[in-house]
Design a protein around this nucleic acid. Structure first.
Length: 853
DNA sequence: GAGCACTGC
């Protein structure tokens, strides 16, 4: 470790001491590597600022909080948790001697809302303030208020790497600004000569081209490519791996939802040169050593809360100058570097200097409640560093009023906190979940609801977009769920917990084990608070219905009704629209509440309002929970004329359908299937494309024919069925699908046991149809023996392979010397196609009246 | 052949 006294920040020591003593407020502008975070607290201690009190150092991230405390304790040669300590959610190393306390931002805000004088705190240091997190902004404003009113002796230091110090200086005035240099290497910035058109040439191709160009010139070091999300990352990885100039590089994707092993792989050191393609995780949260080249696409997915619609959005936006500089800085940590920006210098000048701070873009409900609890009823008049959008404040107050956390009395200009609101604030969660917990007390289900709140606090630990095999394992181990996605998550967590969060077990179900690990302690914390607040948190038998009603109480503003059974489109209350999430288990619930509503920009710029974490709701509950709001809540759902047509059609069949085991949702499908099948049988449509739904058609058509004779649907006889099957088989062999790709034959369910026996050697095992939630075909994990033998023969290893629509691909868990996984997709597809003549010959023998082409 | 950035009490 270099001598800390040589860090650049020491040049400012006397100035810092003087400014803190004279004004009690100070801004230190210093980049990473200046030593500010570790040294300034020690300076304060040495110069007597911490006599009879402590310094609290605010950090935006838990990991940094822990690491900084550890380093300062080491430098001071004291055990961690004695003079120097830290405190993050559910974890602290403190003692009564602690003088330097590193904390995450939420800790201080909560401390302030329960102890308005901050007794025992002499100095507050706001580190990394330029990140402008919501809690940081609020805490600073509150600290200033406290300093002005009851604690004139309180010292405030704001530190940041880059900052528009002008506005902040005014805000803190009178206040001095001290500037220090950092220790990093120069980074040469390059811009594109002319504007890139990502519509014409996708961003991943441009990035790959620039990588290849720079690789030809640069001597050594790793590359870091910034992309806005997982999809763009995977396309970039493909493009890079296909580039001849980059064949000596190993390429790794990196983003937050990757399993931990994959993240470790990306950050590890290799003999070969490396390209990491990453999201914003690599901008602030993760440091990666050895990077000398940064390729920055200049885009990021940015979370906002739209106060007009009351929904979250996640759209791709251009990053600010400050953010681009931060990304560029990643190339100069260990040696001089290069940063290529995929935009022009001219465009750069038009970019905003900073990202919009979180107060201007996030849901304010929780902080508004915090302010009201501190007696600040006029939240618009609060001394914000940056005043939030008026609509945002209004939306927050409206929600709090809906939840009963604040109330407006006629004589008051502003809503004030209620007793319910105060009780809600005891729980460190979004007010919606706090409200759910209080509702749970009334309904005798505090434990499961506390669990549900714990399940959704961290990042989603049930990974999305997992392989088919993982999906199957989930279905097998977690079972069917029709009441709530929360229950499925609960079972997933229980599975992880019972398996002690083992990596293997978690990987099998696509569970992020670190994420799942957080749930238990949070659950325990919520239960502790519940008990302290006098809620009945005992174990007891609980009806699912009671729990669902609690969700409805917390999320009544996110009530949704399916528009039809054929699509996932929904109406939301307050005249909004959305689409039920594909991964939701509530695919059959006509009415539900979504605990998450988020507008997301996906590939190709397509934007969808996605409704996830759904809980099925029954209409009578609305009347029960919201006797007054009932008509408001449901009229939107029913009043549009388009829906009347659907409702009418549904009513016509409902009585009959309800007698059977099927639901009214099936009727449109049945009708469509009947139509299609009749057309096929009449020879009007040629069934060229194998369709996994055909067997279901038959069931549906016959059910429809039986139930609704007035429709005059012809039932499908066994002879018809045989014809269909033959048509399908015929169509499959050598047929092409709509994209012109060959379609693989998957025949098992269509043929007799005898026929199957003949071709079994050539065909993969086909399993049952989907379970209705997803009517997709499931394939066996293992393919036909003949294919496994071929893999052995070709590669001398045991291969695992996946069978898809039109191609056979093999993934072999062996890395080539250049760390690239071996890809053998095409070879095997070709090999597979060679099997066709044999299959055809056999079929011709069995079905001589057909000509098998 | 799709639909998802990062944190924090």
């Amino acid at each position: 470790m270099p001598n800390p006294r040589e860090l650049p920040i020491y040049e400012l020591e006397s100035a810092i001491v003087e400014a803190v003593r004279a004004q009690g407020r100070l801004i230190v502008q210093a980049p990473t590597g200046s030593g500010k975070s570790t040294q300034i607290p020690q300076m304060l201690l040495r110069h007597g600022f911490l006599d009879g009190g402590e310094v609290v150092v605010l950090q935006p991230r838990r990991l940094a909080t822990r690491m900084l405390a550890k380093r300062v304790a080491e430098e001071m040669e004291t055990p961690l948790g004695d003079i120097v300590g830290y405190q993050i959610r559910l974890e602290s190393r403190l003692s009564k001697h602690t003088k330097i306390r590193f904390v995450t931002e939420g800790i201080l805000l909560r401390q302030m809302s329960f102890d308005a004088t901050l007794s025992g705190v002499n100095v507050i240091v706001f580190d990394e303030f330029h990140e402008r997190h919501l809690y940081g902004d609020i805490s600073l404003a509150r600290a200033l208020q406290i300093q002005q009113s009851t604690r004139p002796d309180l010292k405030i230091i704001v530190m940041s790497a880059t900052l528009d110090a002008g506005a902040l200086k005014n805000y803190l005035s009178p206040c001095e600004v001290l500037v220090s240099q950092g220790r990093s290497f120069p980074v040469k910035i390059e811009y594109l000569q002319k504007t890139a058109d990502f519509e014409r040439e996708p961003v991943w191709d441009v990035a790959a081209r620039e990588c290849a160009r720079v690789a030809a010139q640069s001597a050594g070091g790793d590359f870091l490519v910034f992309m806005p999300g997982a999809y763009e990352i995977s396309r970039t990885v493909q493009a890079l791996q296909g580039s001849r100039e980059l064949r000596d590089f190993v390429v790794f994707p990196l983003h937050g939802e990757l399993p931990p092993e994959a993240q470790d792989r990306a950050v590890a050191r290799y003999d070969a040169r490396k390209i990491i393609v990453s999201t914003n995780v690599a901008e602030t949260s993760l440091t990666i050593d050895g990077v000398t080249v940064v390729i920055d696409c200049g885009l990021a997915r940015v979370a906002r809360f739209d106060p007009h619609r009351g929904i979250n959005t996640l759209l791709i936006e251009k990053i600010s100058v400050a953010s681009a500089d931060q990304r560029a800085g990643r190339a100069g940590r260990t040696a001089p570097g290069v940063c290529v920006r995929l935009w022009t210098e001219r465009e750069h000048a038009q970019r905003p200097a900073q990202e919009l701070p979180e107060v201007r873009r996030l849901d304010l409900a929780e902080v508004v409640l915090t302010l009201k609890a501190s007696g600040i009823d006029d939240v618009a008049g609060f001394p914000w560093l940056e005043k939030p959008d008026a609509k945002g404040l209004e939306r927050a107050e409206m929600l709090l009023e809906d939840l009963g956390a604040v109330a407006r009395h006629e004589k008051d200009a502003h809503a004030t906190i209620t007793e319910t609101g105060r009780r809600m604030l005891r729980f460190p969660v979004h007010p919606r979940y706090a409200r759910m917990l209080l509702e749970a007390d009334a309904r005798g289900c505090v434990r499961p609801v506390a669990m549900m709140a714990a399940l959704v606090q961290g990042r989603n630990f049930l990974l999305r977009g997992v392989p088919r095999a993982v999906e199957e394992a989930r279905e097998d181990l977690l079972g069917e769920e029709t009441e709530s996605d929360f229950f499925l998550l609960m079972r997933a967590w229980r599975f992880a917990d019972q398996n002690r969060y083992s990596m293997d077990a978690c990987r099998r179900l696509g569970i992020h084990s670190m994420g799942a690990r957080q749930v238990g302690p949070l659950f325990a914390e919520f239960l502790r608070i519940a008990e302290r607040e006098g809620l009945d948190a005992g174990e007891k038998r609980v009806e699912g219905e009671a729990v669902s009603k609690c969700v409805l109480a917390g999320f009544s503003g996110q009530l949704a009704k399916r528009l039809d059974a054929g699509t996932l489109r929904c109406d939301l209350v307050h005249k909004r629209r959305g689409v039920l999430a594909r991964e939701s288990a509530m695919q059959r619930a006509p009415l539900f509440v979504a605990a998450e509503v988020s507008e997301v920009e996906g590939r190709g710029g397509e934007v969808n309002v996605l409704l996830s974490m759904a809980t099925a709701v029954r209409e009578p509950w609305l009347k029960e929970l919201f006797p007054d709001a009932y008509f408001e809540a449901t009229s939107v759902v029913y009043d549009e004329s388009a829906k009347r047509v659907i409702a009418k059609r549904e009513r016509r069949f409902r009585d009959l359908v309800l007698e059977s085991r099927a639901s009214a949702d099936d009727v449109p499908y049945d009708a469509a299937a009947a139509l299609l099948t009749q057309q096929v049988l009449a020879g009007k449509i040629k069934l060229e494309q194998w369709d996994e739904n055909v067997e279901q058609w038959i069931v549906r058509v016959n059910r429809l024919a039986e139930w609704f004779p007035e429709l005059e649907v012809n039932p499908i006889t066994d002879a018809d069925r045989a014809t269909l099957i033959e048509q399908i088989c015929y169509g499959e062999l050598g047929a092409k699908d709509v994209r012109g790709k060959p379609v693989m034959p998957v025949l098992r369910d269509w043929l007799t046991a005898e026929q199957l026996a003949v071709i079994d050697d050539y065909l993969p095992e086909r399993l049952v149809m989907g379970n209705g939630r997803r009517s997709r075909v499931r394939y066996a994990k293992e393919g036909p023996p003949i294919l496994s033998a071929r893999i052995q023969e070709l590669y001398g290893v045991e291969g695992r392979f996946t069978l898809g629509h039109g191609r056979v691909s093999v993934k072999i868990e062996v890395l080539a010397p250049n760390q690239r996984p071996i890809q053998v997709t095409d070879d095997l597809t070709a090999f597979w196609r060679d099997m066709y003549p044999k299959i055809k010959a056999e079929l011709s023998r069995r079905y001589p009246r057909h000509e098998w082409r």
